[in-house]
Design a protein around this nucleic acid. Structure first.
Lengths: 343, 343
DNA sequence: AAAATAATTGTAAACGTTTTCTTTTTTTAA
DNA sequence: TTAAAAAAAGAAAACGTTTACAATTATTTT
């Protein structure tokens, strides 16, 4: 039992079929002319010895691999994983597979992973970046095609595509819905404003508020940075409870913070829409089975993953495609957690 | 812009530092004696040229890689992904990363993936098998350490560990809870009985029923094979509605079919516990935010992932550890969807 | 039937590392 | 001061493929 080392190589097949390894290579890679009889003989030997080509050796020679990297803040976030799943379905058809990595939005961890992947010479990269390793990413980008997920890299040097959502628009729409229903004190639970998606969503809120005559300045009390985390959402509710004048609505700007808010509200017995109204960017799993359903901007993650998968395939084939953007439009799904505010 | 090929190699570093590539290799791999001054010089050259070692070449030489394979029926299943996440945390500390694959319980797709991974010479494999490729898995097992996830391979030839749950026990307990509350017509929504976990869970149910004097034979009407899928769960409800004598309770034996049942019940306006009681194997995400909460057998997926990660690391280091089993015990969480049946 | 061409196969170098075996240099022991 | 031992560094082979080039064999043309 246990581990052996002597795998079957092309050498063995060649010997068995009484040809040179070049010929074996040619039947493996189909494309060359090789006599039908010898091909059959080689095929038979491969079968007989249950030969599997060594991708490592092949990769070294041809300078490319058959795996793509999928690097996101948290792979267990249902939003990311369902995109990943769709990517997988696309690339699997081309005999590629996928290495997934969770950075936890940590600069060092992202860098470690990116270096590892670059060492491994991945064929392509789908990246939801922390935004803190742009120099390395640009360097990496010289060798490896990159598709950005949700977060932009604003550098003229970057060449690749972006797959994202209509941050500003949907954020505006969600805020507007609350405003139309009479809400004015709307707590926005945003993410890092140093990330393009965080900032755009925040700006959508600010713009809508401004359009309704409300100025969101530095010391405006109805904003809380959750870092797009579950804990952050939870803390937002605790922050809210301490406010002298409570907000009448809360707008969580990503799925994790929405869950955090929902849990905290459940715990503190804050009911929606009686005590507070809720809207949220991103949907959450099994929303329609839940007691409290915020109005959400829902995205077709399957489509996003499909786009990302196709884009990376195209870019692997031809790395000099001009930069593109695939922006997914939201579907606003009305929940039961939004109420009209009587002034 | 675009893609270049001329990466920095050890050759370049050696030239810059005015040493041989052997020396460069030695400073990279620390372990050898190399003069401090020359080490510094080499280190400086590496820095200056921003050298990254080529893992492919290294792997070819040392005959092992730094990625482990994670092959499951569906990576987007929250149960699997949260195990994967915990595995990632363990192996990342050892500078390993993880290739994930979804087989969809399809024999061919599993085989394709396994061959691809074997070609890529992965360091280890964590596998939730379809159960239909045992021959190849045993062959693969000669070269690559394997940790089985939830599904056994009953072959004396297999060497590796199992990380799983206490299928029979928890299934028995859940069934018993219903029986104690007076339920007798309990629809079991099981999975494939050809898979060890499917069979064990089913047997737990059968045993409990038998202990309460109910014989579950071939033509016993209160059983439905969902294949552990969402659609299967949904169909189970449709099947249930067609039964002349309705069951008073339903026991879904995995998380996907539970969600399917919940959705179908919502759609057909079947309420719990008034119309039907519900217990379920596996928990589901955000259960405590949901309207209808079955009593569930919940598992600590973090612990399972940790065990799987540690086990694979240990087996990579020493492949001839005797077979082990890491069986996770459930926590039964009582929901609001179970009612006492008045006879 | 010979020459020209096309099809098939083989030889050997290369990909970028690691590592064994030598060789050179430095240090220690006498 | 020299011999012996230890430390440091280099040369070259090897890992298992691909592929340019050369060599051989088969086919076509005249």
């Amino acid at each position: 039992m246990a581990i052996r080392n002597e795998r079957v190589t092309m050498q063995d097949v060649a010997r068995d079929a009484n040809v040179s390894i070049a010929t074996v290579s040619r039947v493996i890679n189909k494309n060359y002319n090789v006599n039908e009889k010898t091909r059959d003989r080689v095929l038979k030997s491969m079968e007989k010895l249950s030969f599997l080509p060594n991708s490592i050796a092949r990769s070294l020679k041809i300078n490319s691999t058959s795996t793509i990297g999928f690097v996101v803040s948290d792979i267990s976030n249902t939003y990311h994983i369902s995109i990943a799943r769709a990517v997988e379905d696309v690339i699997e058809k081309h005999n590629l597979n996928m290495t997934v990595c969770s950075t936890g939005n940590d600069k060092e961890r992202e860098l470690t992973y990116l270096k590892l992947l670059m060492s491994q010479n991945i064929a392509g990269l789908i990246l939801n970046t922390t935004g803190k390793n742009n120099d390395f990413i640009l360097e990496m980008n010289k060798y490896i095609p990159i598709i950005l997920l949700n977060r932009r890299i604003d550098s003229p040097g970057f060449v690749g595509d972006l797959v994202g959502t209509d941050n500003l628009d949907s954020s505006y729409k969600l805020t507007e819905q609350l405003l139309k229903m009479g809400h004015r004190r709307i707590l926005v639970v945003h993410g890092s404003l140093e990330l393009s998606n965080g900032l755009e969503r925040y700006n959508g809120y600010v713009q809508a508020m401004k359009d309704y005559g409300i100025d969101v300045g530095e010391d405006y009390p109805y904003q809380f940075n959750s870092g797009f985390t579950l804990e952050g959402g939870y803390q937002a509710v605790e922050y809210m409870r301490r406010l002298p004048q409570k907000p009448t609505a809360v707008f969580t700007q990503n799925n994790m913070s929405t869950i955090g808010v929902l849990r905290a509200c459940k715990e503190y017995n804050i009911n929606a829409p009686e005590d507070i109204s809720m809207v949220a960017y991103d949907t959450i799993d099994n929303l329609n089975l839940m007691t409290t359903r915020p109005t959400v901007a829902s995205y077709n993650t399957h489509s996003m993953g499909y786009n990302a998968g196709m884009a990376i395939l195209e870019r692997i084939k031809d790395p000099r495609i001009p930069n593109r953007e695939f922006i997914e439009q939201s579907e606003i799904i009305t929940g039961n957690a939004v109420g009209i505010l009587m002034k």
